[in-house]
Amino acid sequence: MSNVSITLHNNDEARGLIAAIQKDNPNSVSHVYPGMVKIDCPDRIVIFRESVELEIGRSWTVNEIHLSLISLAGNVDEDDDYFAIHWNH
């Protein structure tokens, strides 16, 4: 089993996104570095638009992830309602 990973800004804009990821991916582990948060999770990470909207209290388009993204590891699958990272092992 390999980890997928996503690294996000550690700032106000990304905070709700990070909280949503942590809630929806209970097996994930977050590492806080200066300026950024790296979230690792076995096999896959899924980010649901609804969960993020619940956290930040406004509507959110999945595309907006580009503003908070620093890096990732895994295959990306993006649609209107979710953003997923996974390996095809």
Partner: peptide
Amino acid sequence: TVTFGFSAQSDEARHMTLGL
């Protein structure tokens, strides 16, 4: 520098995905 770096890196996530 950290701001330009992470600003650039947010593009890199897209570049990495394109590369893969």
